[in-house]
């Protein structure tokens, strides 16, 4: 089983994100960079499938040079090799543009299964995985909490509002991860040592046969901080009953939500 994981390096979820001077780009100086949590589920699942069925796990990422660190972490967890598409043109891509680039790179790679995160926790786009599948003309299954592969077919349980749905598809396929799929492992000391010798292939857009990144269809015209909440009100009272009564009164008469 040849598995490719689409992995994005993102600011750690506890990071403070600022707004750049241009007003349209996020300021991420001094943040810690991590593998997007849903991509970590993808790496873990890929390694588990490999451990059971054999094969190899390739990590594919598009981003800045430093994204190699995130790939290296995945290699330390147990993936076999990495491919990093890095090119100044990637900066100005929107989600569909990134998906085109990843699909472009995948055209010269072999895969039975591609695993992506449901969303990257920086742009929260919920788009790239499914769009990659479309560009490769293969099926996709999103929000997967459980999968089973047999006879070149995959059966996936996916979460939907109020329950789960199980679907099946022949391979190759792309699926996206949902929390509950697995608990990602930590890289062991041995894994970290081994990862140093594993290859990361760096490629430009030209290397994967793309002249440019295309024109983005969506443009961020302004970033703002979310509307500030008015300073909260602490409800005081002599007893739990008194506090409860004051809260319910405020919710009923002031906020009018109950």
């Amino acid at each position: 089983m040849e598995i490719v994981v689409l992995l994005k390096q993102v600011p750690a979820t506890e990071s403070n994100i600022g707004i750049g001077d241009d007003g349209v780009s996020a300021k991420t100086d001094n943040v810690k960079w991590i593998i997007s949590p849903y991509d970590e589920f993808a790496v873990e699942e890929a390694i588990r499938i490999k451990e059971k069925q054999g094969g190899s796990v390739t990590i594919l990422s598009a981003g800045a040079e430093k994204a190699a660190d995130a790939i290296r972490t995945a290699l330390a967890m147990g993936a076999d090799k990495g491919v990093l598409i890095t090119d100044p043109a990637i900066q100005s891509c929107d989600g569909l543009g990134i998906a085109k680039i990843l699909a472009g790179a995948l055209k010269s790679m072999s895969y039975d299964l591609i695993i992506a995160g449901q969303r990257a926790v920086d742009d929260d786009n919920y788009l790239v995985g499914t769009a990659v599948a479309e560009f490769l003309n293969i099926p996709s299954i999103s929000f997967v909490v459980k999968q089973e592969i047999a006879d070149k077919k995959i059966r996936c349980q996916r979460t939907v509002e109020g329950g789960t749905v199980t679907v099946e598809s022949p391979l190759p396929i792309l699926f996206t991860t949902q929390r509950g799929l697995n608990e990602p492992r930590y890289a062991s000391m041995q894994g970290i040592m081994k990862a140093k010798k594993k290859p990361i292939d760096k490629k430009s857009l030209k290397d994967i046969g793309m002249a440019d990144a295309g024109k983005p269809l969506t443009k961020i015209i302004r970033l703002t901080f979310p509307p500030q909440r008015k300073a909260g009100q602490i409800i005081d009272g002599e007893s739990a009953q008194a506090k409860a009564a004051a809260l319910v009164k405020a919710l009923h008469e002031q906020a009018k939500v109950i």
């Binding site: 970033l223 703002t224 979310p226």
Partner: peptide, 13 residues
């Protein structure tokens, strides 16, 4: 975006 830390005005074309 960023888990609600930032809001983006986006113009689709």
């Amino acid at each position: 975006m960023y888990g609600g830390k930032i809001y983006a005005d986006v113009m689709p074309e």
